[in-house]
Design a protein around this nucleic acid. Structure first.
Lengths: 317, 317
DNA sequence: TGAGAAAATGTACGCGCGTACATAAATCGG
DNA sequence: CCGATTTATGTACGCGCGTACATTTTCTCA
């Protein structure tokens, strides 16, 4: 076809105000042009307010737009059984990225069905050992290791750890990294210095009461995310712990919140935004290659980085 | 049709693993089942990290899911001209909710085109005077009025105001509410005590230098959002202003961040989440009613609420 | 000027559903 | 048992695009 004709057609189209119907086109090609982003159902929590989801979604959104795809938000509902396959069969999405997946039997089953049918998908920030799922993750073992090691180097020896639910592989990673750093220094993580929350600030505030009971045995706390770290600090403050007896604090995520506390919170920077971008890019790349490609699952792991702020400075040493 | 037959069909469908193709169905009915959410393009900003967008999107998402619609995220791109109509013509969306619209000529033109074609849409948190656009807004005049009045009641007289860009009607609303409260107390807002930012924390930090020059004439600051208020506080601190000379601070949005600063930040609570829910509900209600309805544009205004925290307590009086 | 290639134009069909209508079968009432 | 009604089954078409292929026109170069 000649370029000139092409131009003439385009002009005519514009003159007639013609807009191709994405609907009809998608129907004809049986591709929706949408990339699904699955969000977990967390009751009473405004999902996006969490730094984690916000950043990842921004990353996905940016890359998807760049590659000409639209983003369809898929909200997990608590009642109906987890059925990712449905979205594919209904042709609402061509591929999907799953956020906040948990390592429980139901989730695993749903993901296996996806894999068995050869449907393209990718998990972010969650690893299933031994399963052939594509994943984009950050190295939380490394991140936790560095954080705790930093505390040890600063002179802290009696280190407590507040973790998130163990159904998330990244919680387990953190535990592992934390123990590794302690072990290298000849220390062990005592059971009574392990606290558990659900990544919310309020769970940190709650845990503060527990922490308070053993505060004499603690001179630093590593928390699995910033919000719990902040909750802990606020809880301790509310319980009347004097400033000078505060343990050093180390958070995780390097969220905006870590920069507005007093003292500012040291944290582990996780490239959530980039993880979103990469996940979108990879998943779409494989989609465009088509079914002809071998379609090996990929596992991408991004490094984390320490951001040292006042909360882990030598307050007591 | 008999109920029994219905059941038999459904069973057969399940047995055959039949899933109706949403794609084909949408094509046949020429409705996409998607509700578009338009997000403004803000370079280098990770959009969702902003409390404002996060909350509203959560609200929309919740309601949409409830009503059986999916959410398609539409990212505004800087290069191509603003063309909301396109999404409708392409049948990617049935209706849309526009966030972060600005009062500039291009935006206005784009919105007018939507209105002229009778396409259903709704703005959140932005008012266009004299235009027949459906809007869901919060009463920012009232919110600002209450905030400043509170400061005045606390004994503060010399009140500075840090506003956002005036292209947003809600910035203008805040100015109006602020001036109203001052006027009632026989005060005026002096030009040199007005600062302007872009709602980011860094713009607050920047403005702190300006504020510092007139700090002797200021005993309280009202900021148009929390992030700028926090930026101002941090900026003043960085510039070495001693704690006891700090002005009282009042923020806006009641974001999570307002609860983690020291002192905690008084703020105006805006029901963003509910605004999202209402916008989705209204826009879908009108959609279901079909074109038969008179389709009068609606304007819904939700009240705001003060949340008093330490930053506006009598620090100096 | 004519043969061959390139470009333009024309025609047909399927994607899988909703919708409408025609026909056949089952059910009901007297 | 028959007519009237409800229910079941069958048939056809269109939504607007992509795709394939047949046909006609234009262009190119000898």
């Amino acid at each position: 076809m000649k370029e000139e004709t092409r131009q003439r057609v385009m002009e005519a189209a514009k003159k007639l105000n013609y807009v191709p119907s994405a609907l009809a086109r998608n129907f004809a090609t049986s591709r929706s042009g949408n990339i699904g982003v699955v969000l977990p159902y967390v009751p009473k929590v405004h999902m996006f307010s969490s730094f984690f989801f916000s950043e990842i979604l921004s990353g996905i959104g940016n890359k998807a737009r760049e590659l000409g795809y639209d983003i369809l938000l898929l909200f997990q509902t608590p009642d109906e059984s987890m059925d990712y396959v449905r979205w594919f069969h209904a042709h609402k999405i061509d591929t999907c990225i799953i956020l906040g997946a948990k390592d429980d039997p139901e989730e695993l089953l749903a993901l296996r069905r996806l894999a068995e049918e050869g449907l393209p998908f990718c998990l972010i920030n969650q690893h299933f050992e031994g399963e052939p799922f594509s994943e984009v993750d950050a190295d939380h073992v490394q991140g936790s290791y560095m954080a705790v090691r930093h505390l040890i180097e600063r002179g802290y020896r009696r280190i407590a750890f507040m973790n998130g639910p163990l159904t998330y592989s990244n919680s387990r990673d953190r535990l592992q990294g934390c123990e590794k750093a302690l072990a290298e220094a000849g220390l062990v993580l005592k059971e009574e210095l392990i606290f558990r929350g659900n990544f919310s600030r309020s769970s940190g505030i709650t845990a503060a009461s527990e922490l308070m009971k053993v505060i004499d045995q603690v001179d630093a706390v590593f928390a699995a995310n910033d919000r719990m770290a902040i909750g802990l600090m606020q809880g301790l403050r509310d319980l009347g712990l004097p400033e000078e007896r505060f343990p050093a604090m180390f958070g995780y995520d390097n969220s905006d919140a870590s920069q507005v506390t007093t003292p500012e919170l040291s944290s582990v920077k996780v490239p959530f935004y980039e993880m979103g971008e990469i996940a979108a890019a990879e998943v779409l790349k494989r989609l465009e290659q088509g079914a002809g490609a071998p379609d090996q699952p990929f596992r991408i792991m991004l490094p984390t980085e320490l951001v040292i702020r006042a909360s882990s400075q030598n307050l007591r040493f």
